[in-house]
Design a protein around this nucleic acid. Sequence first.
DNA 1: TTGAAAGCGCTACCAC
DNA 2: GTGGTAGCGCTTTCAA
Lengths: 356, 356
Amino acid sequence: MQSQVNRRSARPRPSSAVTLQQVAQDAGVSLATASRVLSDSDRNVTQELQERVLEAAARLRYVSNAPARALVQSTTSIVGLVVHDVNDAYYSAIAAGVMEVARDHKLLVMLAGTFHEPGLQVEYVARLRAQRARAVILAGSGFTGGSPALTQELDAFTAQGGRVAAVAHQGLAVDTIVPGNREGGRAVAEHLAGLGHTEIGVICGPLALVSVQDRLHGFLERAAELGVVVTEHHRVEADFTRDGGRAAAVRLFRRSPGITALFALNDAMALGALAALRDDLGRGVPSDVSVVGFDDLPVACDVTPALTTVRLPLEEIGRRALLLALGDATASPRTLDVPSRLVVRASTTPPPRVTG
Amino acid sequence: MQSQVNRRSARPRPSSAVTLQQVAQDAGVSLATASRVLSDSDRNVTQELQERVLEAAARLRYVSNAPARALVQSTTSIVGLVVHDVNDAYYSAIAAGVMEVARDHKLLVMLAGTFHEPGLQVEYVARLRAQRARAVILAGSGFTGGSPALTQELDAFTAQGGRVAAVAHQGLAVDTIVPGNREGGRAVAEHLAGLGHTEIGVICGPLALVSVQDRLHGFLERAAELGVVVTEHHRVEADFTRDGGRAAAVRLFRRSPGITALFALNDAMALGALAALRDDLGRGVPSDVSVVGFDDLPVACDVTPALTTVRLPLEEIGRRALLLALGDATASPRTLDVPSRLVVRASTTPPPRVTG
DNA sequence: TTGAAAGCGCTACCAC
DNA sequence: GTGGTAGCGCTTTCAA
């Protein structure tokens, strides 16, 4: 009775893709010869046959079946790029660097956005493993303490021959790029303390992120050395976004109205803080409050006042990450430091003179 | 009940990826049964065997070999997204929309950046065809007059069963999203003319782009209707970027210092114009010159003065594009209009009163 | 319900 | 040099 077979047997498609077999036939050569010509392996083929094959391939608009090729070679020209948010200029910049190197190496990039869900990150690495991707770049900052699930997944991927490079991750046994987050935080502390600020607020992204921790600790460390104490009371945590920064700024100033300088742990949050200061709090920047960001996104010099921030060479980080993953496997895992640099613009000045 | 012997001799490849065969062996079932369980096709498998297979797969961290699967099914879960510049907020926004739908449909996205080389665009579509991508989204505006090479390549792709959706392309015989470029241009003309501007400069991106043409013509058309003539003398062409906009603004004002309003055909150029006006030309915005952009990138409300611009729902365009490509193939090609809307902010006011 | 076996399109290894 | 052919790992008939 259950012979009611599912009749959706409509073939997925006519699948009229041109095959190598057809090209060979059209050129009057064997499959093997056609393959030799078109897969530019050993070119032990007569000039004449070569031309015949090339011509047939062009005429038929033949492109080789990448999955078939991948199956036999058990590798692909695919690299995966995992980011938290595609629409975040930080990742766009890294992606641009990755794409550049990918283009030069004739690699295809699979872009995976985790939408900030750590679970999705692991799932994407697994799918990239299934795709037999040659390498995976983890561009999004890792979580402090690491993730066992991610570690296991990465192990499986590398065991299969896949290469991995991570940016701002910890304890991952893969090639890792260490951006100058800590040193950048230190530079900000120095700048602000040097200007004479003593009451400084810090707007943090999720404290579980390695980047956030590094930037924050670098800052606190150097500030303390310079005699500026930033209590927890002067710190707020929020989403690593413009909206997060805006809300955080409002909260922070309600709590501590005496703050004269604000360090937002990335530019997106700094933008939000700028908006809050201007629209919600009615404070002038930098006349009332100095503001510093981090990353030096392109937008930093388009806002008013132009934002003092820490420059991270994001495109280069992207390039280096892929290059690392494409490089010598035997030397892995290795670590690459990419320095940051404070860029002073118009959003910071000495604190307003207090009358009295 | 012994495990069926693996008759292949010991010739292990360097890649030690777990195969379905191994899972089947480990679970003590046949390859076919393991496949049935893990490829969630017809689940006509005993509860018990099902569990055994699932357990074995989990224990071995098995993921199926996507290329192998693609080979037999002659389709993949890959969609290609072709943009001109990965690091351009316009494309980031579209990409975000595409990624969202991709995530919901369990699709993988291959991101291809053409770096503004039309040749690369065709090449990428060919590679996506080779990958047996299920669909391709052409997010970058097309060129007026079209491109025969692109058309042919797209034909080959669709002949093979691939689906295509294009944004702001012309004459392509594929599903196409038509953003409200023309209507947006008209709205700008109306706004500026309504404010009383009569000497208006237009900063154009490459005139070969469909988007540029549509925006420009919509604007000129409506301006003319309202009695405002914008001669070629008041128009400049430059790269569709911030730098292009900056250079163009300088050039334009050197030529026609009397201009009281500037229409930049995208926000990136408008940002550059703002910078030029402020830093190179010393003109106040909007006191001396009103400025209008196009796209409404997130940055538009962070600059000072906040930019009047035409809002394009870019993420939605991305979502719709992929949805279109994933939808009913028999109805293709079809056209989807996505309206734009003028957003008036602080960068536009009536022209300064001329003393005389 | 389960297992055996036929390919999917290609590369690479054999003979010739 | 060139052609035949054995699989790569998988899904999917077809038998049992």
